[in-house]
Design a protein around this nucleic acid. Sequence first.
DNA 1: AGCATCTGTTCACATTATCCGAACAATCAT
DNA 2: ATGATTGTTCGGATAATGTGAACAGATGCT
Lengths: 305, 305
Amino acid sequence: MLDLHRLRLLREVHGRGTVHAAARALGYSPSAVSQQLAVLEREAGTALLERTGRNVRLTDAGQVLVRHAIALLEGVEAAEADLATAAAGRAAGAVRVSAFQTAALSIVAPAVRALAASDPDIRVEVVEAEVEQAVPALRLHQYDVAIGDEYDDLPRPVHADLRRERLLREGLRVVLPPDHPEAGAAEVPLSRLAGLAWAGCQPGTGHRSMQLRACRQYGGFEPDVRYSSDDFLIQLAMVRTAGAGALLPELVLAHGGAGLAVRRPAEAPLGREVYLVTRQVRTPAVEAVAAALHAVAAGLSKVES
Amino acid sequence: MLDLHRLRLLREVHGRGTVHAAARALGYSPSAVSQQLAVLEREAGTALLERTGRNVRLTDAGQVLVRHAIALLEGVEAAEADLATAAAGRAAGAVRVSAFQTAALSIVAPAVRALAASDPDIRVEVVEAEVEQAVPALRLHQYDVAIGDEYDDLPRPVHADLRRERLLREGLRVVLPPDHPEAGAAEVPLSRLAGLAWAGCQPGTGHRSMQLRACRQYGGFEPDVRYSSDDFLIQLAMVRTAGAGALLPELVLAHGGAGLAVRRPAEAPLGREVYLVTRQVRTPAVEAVAAALHAVAAGLSKVES
DNA sequence: AGCATCTGTTCACATTATCCGAACAATCAT
DNA sequence: ATGATTGTTCGGATAATGTGAACAGATGCT
C-alpha cells in the first residue's frame, strides 16, 4: 500500500522543485528523501522523477500520482482536524498563521488572546513572514492562514485554489518629527516634503513602490530614501531620532507613534488593504481563527473611523 | 501524521466487529492489531474503541475517524489504480473477482482469457465464493467484483454504496436420466415428478428455496431431496449415476450435462438472474473487467436464445 | 578554461518501529 | 464449573527508516 510519508515527499518535491528544498522543509536530510523516493518508485513500478540538469522534474506517472497525493494529504488533514474536534468536543487542533509585522502586532496578537478564552483547544502558531513567501508556503501546507497587505493600485495575483477575505482597509499617514515646519496642519501636501530625508522599506517591496509612486505622482519629486528597513518600528525610530519623514499605515502608529506628528496626505487618500488567505478546505479550527481575526479587524476599523 | 495502516486496522475492526477477525483478514496477529490500535489512540489523544463484553465497539471519536479512514483508503486505492494505469499506458492493476461455481466456469474463465489478450497488464484474481459472503467482503475491499445470482421471486437486498449490473438471465431446466419415463417430451410437467428422488443444494440456499417452492406451487408435492450439495456438478453426477432428478440453470449443463435429458418445466418459465456487483468507485481495471464479463455474458445469452 | 558550488545519489551504520509468540485477564456458552 | 473465545501485555527478533560522509554530474562565476 502507498505510504503517506512518501507521498508527502513527492508533493513537496513537486511543489519546491528540488529534493534539497523538500528535505529542508520537512526536516529530513536530502539522503533520506532520495532514498524514500527511490522506494516509492520501486513500489510504483515506474520512474516518477527525472533529472533535468541538476534539478528533478516529475514524469507523467509522477504527475498522476502527485495529484492523488495532494488530495489524499488534504483528506488526512481534514481527518486530523475532525478527530481533534471530536475528541475535545469543540474546535481543536493546531493552526499556523503567517502575518507581517503590523498585522502580527495589531490583529493576530489580540485574536490569539481572544481565542485562548473562546477556543482553548485551538493551538495557534504565529510566524512573521511577508505575503510573497507566505502564499506559496500556504499552498504547500506550511501555514493554514496567511495575512497579507495590498497597497492601492498594486494588486496581488489571485489564486483559484485559495480563499481570500478582506479584513480591513487602513489609511496611510505622513509621519514627521513634531518640530517639522509642516507639522502644524491637519493635512500635509506631499509637494511640500521634497527636501525631506525619507525612511522607507527595502527596494522591491510593495510599500517602497507605493512610496515612490506617491511622491512622484502627487508630490512631483523623487524621494531621498536614506533609511531603508522593512521594520516599520525602525522607520518610526528614524523619524523620531534622525528627523526623517515616513509614510506609514495607521495601525503601525499605535505601536510607537506617540509624540510624532501624524498627518493625512493632502493630495489623495492613500491606503492599503489587509486581508487573510486560506486554502479552499478549512477545518473547524481554521474557521474559528478566521472568525477571531475578522472580529479584531472589525473592532480596529470602528476605532479608526 | 495519521498512518494509513493503522487507519485500515480501524476500518477493519469497524467492519468486522472484533480485533481477531480484523487481524485474520489482514494477515496479522491479534497482538499486532491491538498494539497498533493503542498507538492510534495515543496519537488521536482519545479513546477510539471501547470494550462491550468481549467485543469492541467504536466510540464517537472512532466513528468520526473511521468515516475519514474509509474515504482515505478508497482514495489510496484509486491512486494506486491510476498509477498502475499511467505506468503501463493502459488499464492495469490487480482485480479480485468473486464468483459462484457456474459463473466462474462459464463467465469468468472466458473473460479472463479475453482480458489476457486485450488488457495484459490487468491481473485478475478469482475466488470462488457465494454471494452471501462475497458482498460484505466486497464492501470491505476484499474483492473488487462479485458475481451473484438471484432466483425469481427471491430478491436480494439492495445496497446503496454498491453498484449492481445484470449480466444475463438464464432458464432453469429439469434434468433427468435419459431412461426416465418423462424424458421423451420437450417439456416436463413438474406435477409428474412427485415420486422422484431429487438432488438439490444445501438447505437455506436460494436454489434450495426455489426448488421447494417450485415443486410445491407447480408440482403440488414435497420434493424428496435425497442428495444435497451446492456443487451443481455433483448434482449432475447424482442424476447420471443415482437416477435422481435436478432443477438446474442452463449454463451448468454445458459443463457435464451431456447424455442427460434436459427439459423445460411445463408450468412456468423458472429462471435466475446473474449479475455483478462492484463498489461505487471503479478503477479503470475494474471497468475493463466488468466490460469483459458483460461481453462474455452477452455471448452466452445469444447462444441460449 | 578552471574552480567552487550547487545538485542528487550511494554506502555503512545506528536507531526506531513493528510484528510475533506466549502468558494473562475478562467474558460468554455449554 | 469449565472450556472456548476475546482483548491485552510483555520480551525479543526483524525490518524499516533515518543520518552523515563520500561520490558524480551540472551550473555559474572569474
